[in-house]
């Protein structure tokens, strides 16, 4: 189980990393291969392909342990440059 943290960055402009996941820790569910970076495509630029991962988070790790059913999960696709290694939460 490889734990990763979504970087807590807050740039302007079009990014495909939801606000509610920034700074949250999950595990890589699977690698999806490389896809053109939407942050470049959004402005009509040539886009390098970046590794894309499905990252699985516990709802308790996103919303706090007092959330109903904290062991339910949320999977999202996150690009490599938004992820950093992390310890288990």
């Amino acid at each position: 189980m490889q734990h990763v943290r979504v970087k807590p960055m807050m740039p302007p402009g079009h990014v495909r990393t939801p606000h509610y996941l920034r700074g949250k820790i999950g595990v890589i569910e699977r690698s999806l291969g490389a896809f053109p970076n939407p942050e470049d495509l959004a402005y009509g630029h040539a886009a390098p392909a970046l590794p894309l991962y499905r990252v699985r988070f516990r709802l308790g790790d996103i919303w706090g342990e007092d959330t109903p059913h904290p062991d339910d999960t949320l999977d999202a696709e996150i690009y490599d440059h938004w992820l950093e290694p992390a310890d288990a939460p």
């Binding site: 495909r16 990393t17 939801p18 999806l32 896809f35 939407p38 894309l52 499905r54 699985r56 709802l59 059913h69 062991d71 339910d72 999960t73 949320l74 999977d75 999202a76 696709e77 996150i78 690009y79």
Partner: peptide, 15 residues
């Protein structure tokens, strides 16, 4: 039931 895990999938990118 509580014994069923709910998995939410947010289609954030290419899938």
């Amino acid at each position: 039931p509580d014994t069923t895990t709910v998995r939410v999938h947010d289609s954030t990118a290419d899938m």
